[in-house]
């Protein structure tokens, strides 16, 4: 009985770690611009597919492939900001969010053109059998994903709290005009946030592809689940997305295990709604901050 429970839990952790990584990407752009970037899922897909391209197609060494993948995703984020967000110079958030949707469609088209419609994968980061804990198994790659998620949280925390650019980005999030008055180059901060978010998304894609495979059209599903994770944990809170992601993953898995697998998405979403009714700012969000939000 315990074994089965543990297995459901591990399955939830596997799925949840994917949601958590995607959710974190939402927060980076949201924090700097208040935009909800619905092309976030495509950043993850770019990560997975480019990693396949560098490591399996060009046969570059593992570390080189990772670096190149993260750089190319950063470039995609940069281009997206320079070509779509900046020229608009709009303060209408709804319009900006629509723009991100169209970017996601364009990106998906490019990916389909370049990679076709087949799923892709490459070997897990470490060889070897899955770990056996109390009779239940957990794939090594899941531990990698969880570890990478943790590393991303730490790095982002240091970036936001210890570096001048990170602090400047937080200032932009609080009040753009005030940030401008004290001499922060707001438009550069917005650009950096897109690059950073694309990189985090790509890291997620690199880590999850050996588990779930990657297709050109995985983006929307990842975006929806990651967005749920970010909302549940409290939009804008890095650790919130992680808590949200794992909660949704585990909820889905437990529902599938103890109720029925056909219900898992529905139950997870109902619980998400309940959390938002009781605590509209999310698990970690403060309601005072939520009232100041534009979105």
């Amino acid at each position: 009985m315990l074994t089965v429970f543990l297995q459901f839990l591990f399955s939830g952790l596997t799925v949840g770690s994917v949601y958590a990584l995607v959710g974190m990407g939402f927060n980076i752009i949201y924090n700097a611009t208040s935009i909800i970037n619905l092309a976030q899922g495509e950043f993850v897909v770019v990560g997975g597919l480019m990693m396949w391209f560098f490591s399996d197609s060009l046969h570059l060494p593992f570390i080189v492939s990772i670096c190149l993948t993260i750089l190319s995703a950063g470039l995609v984020g940069l281009l997206m900001e320079r070509l779509t967000i900046r020229p608009l110079k709009s303060h209408d958030l709804l319009l900006m969010i629509m723009v991100t949707i169209s970017v996601s469609i364009v990106l998906r088209g490019i990916l389909a053109f370049k990679f076709g419609k087949d799923p892709y994968d490459y070997p897990a980061f470490s060889e070897g059998d899955p770990l056996n804990i109390g009779g239940a198994i957990i794939q090594q790659q899941t531990l990698w994903v969880i570890g990478i998620t943790g590393l991303c949280i730490i790095l982002l925390y240091l970036f936001y709290n210890k570096t001048i650019i990170g602090k400047a980005m937080r200032a932009c999030a609080v009040d753009t005009t005030a940030a401008q008055l004290v001499g922060i180059n707001v438009s550069r901060m917005v650009m950096i946030s897109f690059v950073l978010s694309a990189m985090v998304g790509a890291i997620g894609g690199i880590a999850i592809t050996p588990i779930s495979l990657m297709e050109y059209d995985n983006g929307p599903m990842l975006a929806v689940k990651g967005f749920c994770a970010a909302i549940m944990g409290g939009l804008g809170r890095g650790r919130g997305a992680v808590i949200g992601g794992f909660s949704i993953g585990i909820l889905e898995s437990m529902t599938a295990g103890y109720l029925h697998s056909g219900l898992k998405d529905a139950v997870a979403l109902v619980i998400l709604l309940l959390v938002l009714f009781l605590k509209p700012a999310g698990i970690l969000g403060s309601s005072a901050a939520a009232r100041l939000r534009k979105f």
Partner: peptide, 20 residues
């Protein structure tokens, strides 16, 4: 009799349930 979505990334739960 278990189900999963076209983009699901882990079906361990469904398999474990079938075995159980």
């Amino acid at each position: 009799d278990e189900r999963y979505g076209p983009k699901d990334s882990d079906m361990t739960t469904q398999l474990t349930k079938a075995k159980a």
